Amino acid sequence: MKTVIALFDDRDEAMRAYAALQEAGYAQADLDILTNDDRDDEPKLAKMREYIPQPDVDVYLQGVSDGGTIITANVSDSAVERAAGVMSSFNMVNIKERAVTMKGVYAQLSDPAQNKNVLEVIEEDLQVGKEEVERGRMRIYTVVTEREVQQDVTLRDETLKVSRRPVNRSVSINPDLFKQKSFEMVEIDEIAKVKKTARVVEEVSLGKEVIEKIETIKETLRRQDVEIEEVKTARTFVDYDTDFRGFYTTNFSNSGVTYEELQPAFNYGHKLATTEPFRSSPWSAVEPDAKRIWEEKNPGTWEQNQTIIKYAWEKVRSER
């Protein structure tokens, strides 16, 4: 047996959940209502520390101390999920959120890894940030190159030229007539004179152009939910009487052995299929231990009963 617990802030909501559990078929003797105004509930509340881990139990007890109501249901292992589903359909307290807000209570609940009765609902959130990455780099620098140019220029070139021509002309005699005389003329040429000047013909600058763009990020987020389903309660051995007798009639009616003599083997197979770990394990894993237990009580009879035991195990297990 296990105990399913729910805390409600509203007493009326708690009573509706209590009534729903009764309508779902849970016996009144297995249900209980715990409050802070009933002295008979004090030992029951104190006993909760024995089966609820810390700090979860503090959340429940503090909730009752603040005027809340606890509904408990003592149910079989197979009925735990169903009872929890009935309670969760009402406005019960989210224990994790309450732990964060309550004063004097730890902000963390028990570690699911250490509590086999706790399953986590996990989902991923998308968080998009920005990071600067270098996509390219550019630099500018100067390079000196040379090129040959040419330009036509007009230059004057003087050449001295002596010309003689015959003359027959009389001159007057005077004292200076035969004095030494001279006459000079300068020959001048023009030559090209090169002068260089520098001027700016273009400016090259390096800068950044910044634009903003909207990029849509698509990502797949996972969510792990906890599904609640009702696990069928195993039928009793009597419920399979027709099936087992039919198997006997088909396979052993002419063997000279009565059904009543083989009934313990059918019963043993039924018990294996309703007991862990035999219920959830394959036959290859079940058979060694099943044979050992059978042989301890029925030495030397496993081989003749093995077929019946396996059939009963498979029949009961297939309907779960």
Rank of each mutant, 00 (worst) to 15 (best):
Y26E: 01
Q127H: 10
K232G: 10
V121R: 15
S281A: 13
N251F: 09
T258N: 02
A17M: 00
T249K: 13
T35H: 02
Y240D: 05
I71V: 09
M48P: 01
W283E: 06
R39I: 14
I217L: 03
T142L: 12
S255C: 01
V80P: 04
N298E: 01
S255K: 00
K208L: 12
A29E: 03
Q150D: 08
W283L: 01
A84V: 13
T233D: 12
V201W: 05
K208H: 05
A234P: 04
T242P: 05
D40M: 13
V204E: 02
R82C: 06
S163V: 15
D56M: 12
A99E: 03
K2L: 11
V105G: 08
V171A: 07
T154R: 14
F247L: 14
N36L: 04
E260I: 03
K103M: 08
S172P: 10
K271G: 09
S76M: 12
H270W: 10
M1L: 13
G67M: 01
D10A: 12
R16P: 07
E319C: 07
I214W: 11
D111G: 03
W283R: 02
D56H: 14
G68W: 05
R169D: 05
S110E: 02
T101N: 11
F247S: 09
H270C: 08
V149E: 05
K96V: 09
F90W: 10
D239L: 06
K130C: 08
E219Y: 05
Q224P: 03
L34I: 11
S76Y: 04
M185K: 15
D125I: 15
T216I: 14
P43F: 03
I173T: 09
D66I: 01
E158R: 08
E42P: 02
S253N: 11
L119Q: 09
N174G: 14
G85I: 11
F278D: 14
F183S: 04
T197R: 13
D32L: 09
G104Q: 07
A99D: 01
